[in-house]
Amino acid sequence: AQQSEAIESMTRLLNALLDISRLESGAIQPVAAHVPLHEVFAKLRSEFESVARTRDIDLQVEDSPVVISTDPTLFHQLLQNLLGNALKYTDRGTVRMRCDTDDEGATVIIEDTGIGIPEDKLERIFDEYYQVDTHGTKRMGVGLGLAIVKEVANLLDLQVRITSKVGEGTQACVSIPARFLVAAPRAAAEDPAMQNDEEERSRPRLFLVEDNDSVRLATELFLKLEGHETVSATSVPEAQTLFDGFRRGDVVIADYHLDGKHTGLDMLLGLRERLGYEVPGIVLSGDLPTVLRSLKTPVAKCRFLSKPVDTEALLEAIAELSAA
Results as ranks from 00 to 15, higher is better:
L87R: 13
T90W: 12
T90M: 03
T90P: 13
D91V: 08
D91M: 14
G93H: 09
G93V: 06
G93E: 05
T94Y: 09
T94A: 00
V95N: 02
V95M: 03
R96W: 09
R96Q: 11
M97V: 12
C99E: 04
T101L: 07
T101D: 02
D102F: 10
D102Q: 06
D103Q: 13
D103K: 05
D103I: 02
D103F: 00
G105P: 03
T107G: 06
T107L: 02
I110P: 04
I110V: 15
E111S: 14
G114L: 05
G114A: 12
I115A: 04
I115E: 13
I117M: 00
I117V: 15
P118T: 07
E119R: 14
E119Q: 15
D120K: 12
K121Y: 07
L122R: 13
R124V: 12
R124L: 14
I125M: 08
I125Y: 08
D127Y: 12
D127F: 07
E128V: 10
Y129G: 05
Y129F: 14
Y130H: 15
Y130D: 03
Y130K: 05
Y130M: 07
Q131A: 05
V132K: 10
T134H: 12
T134P: 11
H135K: 15
H135Q: 15
G136C: 06
R139F: 11
R139V: 15
M140T: 15
V142I: 14
L146R: 14
A147Y: 13
I148E: 11
V149C: 11
E151R: 13
V152F: 01
N154F: 10
L155C: 06
L158N: 01
Q159L: 03
V160S: 00
R161Y: 06
I162V: 14
I162S: 02
T163A: 09
T163S: 08
S164L: 00
K165E: 15
K165P: 02
K165H: 09
V166A: 05
V166R: 14
G167R: 13
E168F: 10
E168M: 08
G169E: 02
T170L: 02
T170R: 06
Q171M: 11
C173P: 01
V174A: 01
S175M: 01
P177T: 01
A178K: 13
R179G: 06
R179M: 09
R179P: 06
F180Q: 15
L181A: 04
L181E: 04
A184L: 07
P185I: 01
A187W: 08
A188I: 08
A188C: 00
A189Y: 12
A189L: 12
A189C: 03
E190H: 13
D191S: 02
P192K: 00
E199D: 09
E199Y: 10
E199F: 12
E200H: 03
R201F: 05
R203L: 10
R203D: 04
R203M: 04
R203Q: 12
P204S: 05
R205Q: 08
R205G: 00
L206Q: 03
L208Q: 07
